[in-house]
Amino acid sequence: MQTKTPAQERRDKIVFGTLAVFLFLVIWYLVTKLTAFGEIFPDPVTVLANIGDKFVNPLGKVTLAGHILVSIRRVMAAFVVAAAGGIVLGVTMGWYPVVEAIFKPIIEFLRPIPPIAWIPISILWYGFSEMSKYFLIFLASFFVITISVYSGVKSVDPMLIRAARMLGAKDNQLFTTIIIPSVVPYIFSGLQVALGNSWASIVAAEMVQSNMGVGWIIITGQQSSNMVQIVTGIVCIAVVGMLLVMIMRGLENKLCAWNKQGR
């Protein structure tokens, strides 16, 4: 077998990926048209047509784009706050033993609780306000980011610390020149997992109580037995979720070009 250049490999990926998606749609179409599955599930053409239609004509209060933007805005507002807080707490926990001793047990206790378990509390505290969503997204991302960053600080290569110390680095220099750069990949992996969690949680939160957003699309689809609308919502969730991950990876590749795992 002859070796391929990176450009060829990239082209192959795009070609085969597109073919696979196309094939999936064809099979989906055929199954719904040729079998009884079509009676309980819409075919892809109908779904795609509905998606196109709802980008122009409103679904409930706003168009499909409006719903997606509402959900993304909710995620981003809380995610940014959680990221900032999580990075700061994670780094200080890793660096100062006292901070570690205080916060680690609390974080370890709260972390395994799935974000949707907080939904009842969020409703009782914040009702239908945006704050109830922010609260959930914050919980869905904060602990994940904190722990990831913390473990990053803990796993800094001691060899590099020794090397820097021997070159005369003071504590503050050690922090900025060794600890922070070492932790960057861990920050990104934390952010990626947290963003996935957040997106999953916003859908759940909107399904329980809201009047807008991608979760709302699905739940109102169920309430009116509108299978096309449900699948429309699911497709939107999948596509947006995928795009969020891709953007995050792109950012990581830009900022962590040195990191093999980041490639």
Partner: peptide
């Protein structure tokens, strides 16, 4: 100090 192990900063 030059160590036995490699100690170049990967970033």
């Amino acid at each position: 100090y030059i160590f036995q192990e490699y100690s170049a900063m990967p970033w």
